[in-house]
């Protein structure tokens, strides 16, 4: 399952004197969810458009499923599903008619298209509005219809540009669930976003964009180690003992910072939760909460850009 589906080498896009994308390298493997993160205007959408052959490259190369999007855009677009930022559909047509049009463009035989459309709409929970005009759809439904299009296409790679922007929390949750569904079906997913906490929950690996370059790339934990320093943060809530003193004595603990009444944030060089629990309980304290603090992408992101600004 580790074969590469997208590989970019020195990919560059220049608009006049502005280097929108500056010699980036990355690769995406089959069945993984890869996040392109960064502020607006960092070059995420440009990178996506170059992968689809919708905009020309100024330098470097990108290989999508063994095809070159510059020379063989039709082959690439036949196999890659794309959900643009704030996707649009033809409002005067029904969901079914919209998907039918796509199916015709893909040259899917008519009868097969009908079953695929029904299946795809079922998978995104829109089967009941199949024959409603898209004009009546909410934003979340349109995004789901976009996912249905990718499912119908049986794409090997799905490229989603800001899929969750402008959605309410419930719709976002549903959409992310569908993105996980794509992954389960063996589709490599590439998604771009500036909404970090949401991305964090689905992405296997992320690339942090800054001014057209990939500043950091890897799993969220790797990035956190790189930017925030190595360490295992945990949150401890306990009463009835000198908790701070006990915590400092636990082997491996580096820092103990109080976080309000009866709560401490502990950073250790390993997972010390078992030891902490044991010590507090034997000291007669009442342990009310012991939580492993996942490094937050938001924190990584904020810290990284702070440092980048300071360096500049």
């Amino acid at each position: 399952m580790a074969d590469t589906v997208i590989e970019a080498r020195g990919l560059t896009k220049v608009y006049g004197s502005h280097r929108a994308v500056d010699a980036i390298d990355f690769s995406i493997r089959r069945g993984e969810i890869f996040g392109l993160l960064g502020p607006n205007g960092a070059g995420k959408t440009t990178t996506i458009l170059m992968m689809l052959g919708l905009t020309e490259t100024s330098g470097g190369s990108v290989d999508v499923l063994g095809f070159d999007p510059v020379r063989q855009p039709l082959e690439v677009k036949r196999r890659v599903g794309y959900l643009p930022d704030a996707v649009g559909f033809y409002d005067h047509l029904t969901a079914r008619e919209n998907l039918r049009y796509t199916a015709r463009l893909l040259a899917i035989p008519r009868r097969e298209a009908e079953t695929r459309i029904a299946e795809a709409m079922e998978s995104v929970k829109l089967a009941d509005v199949l024959d409603k005009r898209v004009a009546t759809f909410s934003r979340g439904m349109r995004q789901r219809l976009g996912i249905a299009e990718i499912v119908m296409k049986r794409a090997e790679v799905a490229i989603l540009d800001e899929p969750t922007s402008g959605l309410d929390p419930h719709s976002t949750f549903e959409l992310l669930e569908m993105i996980r569904g794509l992954k389960r079906a063996g589709v490599a997913v590439l998604l771009s976003s500036h909404l970090l906490d949401r991305v964090q929950s689905v992405c296997d690996r992320v690339a942090l964009f800054n001014k057209g370059r990939i500043a950091l790339m890897g799993t969220v934990v790797e990035l956190a180690n790189q930017v925030l320093g190595a360490g295992h943060p945990i949150l401890v809530e306990a009463t009835g003992a000198d908790v701070a003193g006990i915590l400092r004595e636990v082997e491996g603990v580096q820092t103990v910072v109080p976080e309000g009444e009866g709560a401490w944030r502990v950073v250790a060089d390993r997972d010390v939760r078992a030891a902490v629990a044991h010590r507090i309980v034997t000291a007669g304290g009442a342990l009310t909460r012991l939580a492993d603090l996942q490094p937050s992408l938001e924190e990584v992101y904020t810290r990284y850009f702070e440092e980048a600004r300071r360096a500049a």
């Binding site: 458009l49 855009p73 677009k77 959900l83 643009p84 704030a86 996707v87 033809y90 796509t102 893909l106």
Partner: peptide
């Protein structure tokens, strides 16, 4: 304006 162009052009057509 309907934001359909990029979606349609991402299908296999020129």
């Amino acid at each position: 304006n309907r934001r359909t162009l990029s979606r349609v052009l991402s299908q296999p057509i020129y």
